[in-house]
Simulated assay, not measured.
Amino acid sequence: MEVVEIQPWLFQIEPLQGESLSHFLGRFRRANDLTPTGLGKATKLGGAIARWEKFRFNPSPSRQQLEALAVVVGIDVDRLVQMLPPAGVGMKMEPIRLCATCYTESPCHKIEWQLKVTLGCVGEARRRHRHKLSLLSECPNCGARFKVPALWADGWCQRCFMTFAEMTKYQKYY
C-alpha cells in the first residue's frame, strides 16, 4: 500500500495597501493558528520569521527566502517586497509608530511609519485632501509603547485597552 503525504492547507490572507510585513505575518499567523516558529518551519525559514516581525531586516530577506514565504502565504514575491522598506532607506525598529487616523481608515500597520525619513503621516484622509499628523509611539492614555505590529490583533493598547480609533484625537498636526 502506498503512503500518500497529506499536504497541509492554510487560510490565505490578502495584504492591505501599504501594510508592513510584520503586521501581515501576524495576521496570517493568527488566521492559521501558527506561532512564529510554526510559520518558520512551514516556510523552512526558521527564526527569520520572528526577526522580520520585529523589523530586523539585517541581512535583508533574500529573493530565495521571499519565494519560500510566498509559496506558503500564497502571495506574489513582488507584493511581499512592497511590505519591506525600500532599498537604501533606513528603518526605525523602535519605537513602533502609529498613525491612529490611518489605522481607523484601514486597520493595518504601514511600513512607511517605520522609515527613518518619515516625519509624520501623509495618508489619504478624504479623497483629495491629505492629513499631516504626527505619528504616535506610545499610548496617549497610559504611556505604554506599542508592541510589534505582528501582535496587533484588536487595534488597541495592550496595557489599558484604549482603541487606536480613540487615539486619533491625540494626534497633532505637524
Score class of each variant (00 low, 15 high):
1 M>S: 11
3 V>W: 06
5 E>Y: 14
6 I>V: 14
6 I>G: 02
7 Q>A: 10
10 L>F: 14
10 L>A: 07
11 F>G: 10
12 Q>R: 15
12 Q>D: 13
12 Q>W: 12
12 Q>Y: 11
14 E>L: 13
17 Q>D: 14
19 E>Y: 02
19 E>T: 04
21 L>G: 03
21 L>R: 01
22 S>M: 07
22 S>D: 05
23 H>N: 12
24 F>V: 07
25 L>Y: 01
27 R>S: 09
28 F>W: 06
29 R>T: 09
29 R>L: 08
29 R>Q: 14
31 A>F: 01
34 L>C: 00
34 L>P: 00
36 P>V: 03
37 T>V: 12
39 L>A: 03
44 K>Q: 15
45 L>N: 00
47 G>N: 13
48 A>P: 02
48 A>K: 10
50 A>G: 11
52 W>I: 13
54 K>I: 07
59 P>D: 08
59 P>G: 04
62 S>W: 10
63 R>D: 15
64 Q>E: 15
70 A>C: 07
70 A>M: 05
72 V>Y: 00
74 G>W: 01
74 G>R: 02
75 I>D: 00
76 D>M: 06
76 D>K: 08
76 D>N: 10
76 D>P: 02
77 V>P: 08
78 D>Y: 08
79 R>M: 13
80 L>V: 07
80 L>F: 04
83 M>R: 01
86 P>H: 08
88 G>V: 08
91 M>R: 05
91 M>E: 09
93 M>K: 09
95 P>L: 07
96 I>N: 04
96 I>D: 02
96 I>G: 01
97 R>Q: 08
97 R>A: 10
98 L>E: 03
98 L>R: 00
98 L>A: 06
98 L>M: 08
99 C>H: 04
103 Y>H: 08
105 E>V: 09
105 E>A: 13
106 S>A: 10
106 S>T: 12
106 S>M: 11
107 P>H: 06
108 C>L: 04
108 C>W: 01
108 C>F: 02
109 H>N: 06
109 H>E: 05
111 I>K: 00
114 Q>S: 13
116 K>Y: 03
117 V>Q: 15
118 T>P: 02
119 L>G: 09
120 G>W: 08
120 G>P: 04
120 G>T: 03
121 C>M: 06
121 C>N: 04
123 G>V: 06
127 R>L: 13
128 R>M: 15
130 R>V: 15
134 S>G: 15
135 L>W: 05
136 L>Y: 04
136 L>V: 09
136 L>R: 03
136 L>A: 09
137 S>Q: 12
139 C>H: 03
141 N>A: 15
141 N>M: 13
142 C>A: 09
142 C>H: 06
142 C>G: 12
144 A>Q: 13
145 R>V: 13
146 F>T: 03
148 V>E: 15
148 V>K: 06
149 P>C: 06
151 L>S: 12
151 L>M: 11
152 W>V: 03
152 W>L: 03
154 D>H: 14
155 G>K: 00
155 G>H: 02
157 C>W: 00
157 C>R: 00
158 Q>M: 10
159 R>G: 07
159 R>F: 06
159 R>N: 14
160 C>H: 03
161 F>R: 12
161 F>Y: 10
161 F>P: 00
162 M>R: 03
162 M>D: 06
163 T>A: 02
164 F>Q: 01
165 A>K: 07
166 E>K: 05
170 Y>G: 05
171 Q>S: 07
172 K>M: 11
